[in-house]
Design a protein around this nucleic acid. Sequence first.
DNA 1: TTCACCTGCTAGCTTTTCTTGGCATGTGCA
DNA 2: TGCACATGCCAAGAAAAGCTAGCAGGTGAA
Lengths: 103, 103
Amino acid sequence: MTSPHLVQVLATLSNPHRMRVVAALAAERGYVSDLARRLGISRALLQLHLKKLEAAGLVSATLEFSADGKALKFYELIPFDLRLTPETVALAARTLPEESDTP
Amino acid sequence: MTSPHLVQVLATLSNPHRMRVVAALAAERGYVSDLARRLGISRALLQLHLKKLEAAGLVSATLEFSADGKALKFYELIPFDLRLTPETVALAARTLPEESDTP
DNA sequence: TTCACCTGCTAGCTTTTCTTGGCATGTGCA
DNA sequence: TGCACATGCCAAGAAAAGCTAGCAGGTGAA
């Protein structure tokens, strides 16, 4: 894993809503509106968090069709296994872009 | 680890500056001004990040005195070892405070 | 006394993130 | 045709995070 990606993953997971989304998807995949109901948050908000989770490579989406022809966007977890220690963080920090790169 | 704490730790580590600080301290402890020079950032900024790292329980500070009597605040790493998987995240999410708790 | 260090704090600005509410589109069913 | 449910997107405000510049106080050495 590259460290900008690690930064992104950590930032993505460090949010209560997104942790709950991961938990919900770990139990069972679901489509957007369904998930929103299960989690008790608005669809717009969930969609935004799902976007971030997808951008971080933590979930993936599949368009499917229900029996009655409705288009449903199913989300499911992409398994991950990260270890966070001073050593792994230090290692990642070495591949971080310089701050002088974006003046 | 409680999940609010996990959220805090992840949020704290998901920052390039703070990752560099952890990396620097993993290599060798140091005092504020020294660290600022090593990292090439302003002292005020470093102090802010050190505060967050300390609040998250990732570093600790000790006041010491140099040979010539100057007070130096040394920071060092507190070892940590976190594993991040869908399961650990789901587990943590279950102990998350309800959103209805802070209306 | 003046200089070169060290520490700590904060007011204020900029940028980013979070969140809501609304609008548009499409489907099948009564 | 009207209803229910699905998706996507965006504007705009509220809240949080990031950063700088500056001030104040302390020490030892020249």
